[in-house]
Design a protein around this nucleic acid. Structure first.
Lengths: 145, 145
DNA sequence: CTTGATGCAAATAGTTTGCAGGCTC
DNA sequence: GAGCCTGCAAACTATTTGCATCAAG
């Protein structure tokens, strides 16, 4: 268990600032997530919460994750996309991802292999590939917005 | 259009080596993907292929993408996961992703901000965040396999 | 001819939504 | 008391699968 982060203490304040009501479910969802170290899925959180909140529903978990994410209190790990996307390139490359239009642009960064990864990674297992994803808003979306 | 990569020429050989039959659909799916620069989804590829192959079905596209991916001829961009995963950490961090068990482990890498990104990225738009994802197989999966 | 590949349709799985009642402020 | 929030059930959407047929080796 990761120690409870400071922001959990201030959570009610954050919720209020964002105009979010402080419901039992919402607090517990956040508490459970902030103590987890394994990047749970919505369903995993749901299962864990049923002890404390036997009547909570899976869609409440989903709705709260979306709400909390839009207020910057929670992160979605991995891709922002719901659909899988592919490429046929064999060369190593990295991605620029526009969070508005979803456009993915490639770029090369040979230097990435020169970065020395933390020692702890050597203990983790076999490393096969390293990908840098840069998130932001592309020029076109900056213009039209 | 990206120029046709050399491996397309050798594709039939690669297919044979992998024990894959060389079907009209499979070749066209790969050809279409290798010439695309926009990381299409399965459905986007399907739409594009209907000109040449009016009878092709969406599930054939899906099946071939999976097959080609498992033979290392195609990459899935973004996450390997079908399910969204979350965390409540506010600090920037990076991920170790085990392609066998799906476990995600965090690590810190403050140096990442010191990396000078290619100049072309300055023209791309507004950069907000940078995430390094390291793919591989975790120690536990190496053992049990 | 043998086996894997295809196309169709139906099934899944994760996620989202409509609605009526409940709880926070 | 007003409006956001919840739980239930049903809808959606991307993806996968069963099955009979077809084509590559």
């Amino acid at each position: 268990m990761r120690s409870i982060p400071k922001q959990l203490v201030d959570l009610e304040i954050s919720f209020r600032k964002s105009g979010l009501k402080i419901t039992h479910q919402r607090l517990e969802i956040y508490r459970e997530l902030s103590m987890a170290i394994d990047h749970p899925t919505a369903d995993m959180l749901y299962q864990r919460l049923r002890d404390k909140l036997p009547t909570i529903s899976l869609d409440t978990v989903y709705r709260n994750l979306i709400t909390l994410e839009s207020h910057g209190l929670v992160n979605k790990v991995g891709t922002t996309e719901s659909m899988a996307r592919f490429d046929a390139k064999k060369e190593k490359h990295h991605h620029l991802f526009c969070r508005k239009c979803g456009m993915i642009t490639d770029f090369e960064l040979p230097l990435i292999n020169k970065i020395s990864l933390p020692d702890e990674l050597n203990d983790w297992g076999k490393i096969e590939n390293t990908n840098l994803t840069v998130y932001g808003v592309c020029k076109n979306c900056l213009k039209t917005n």
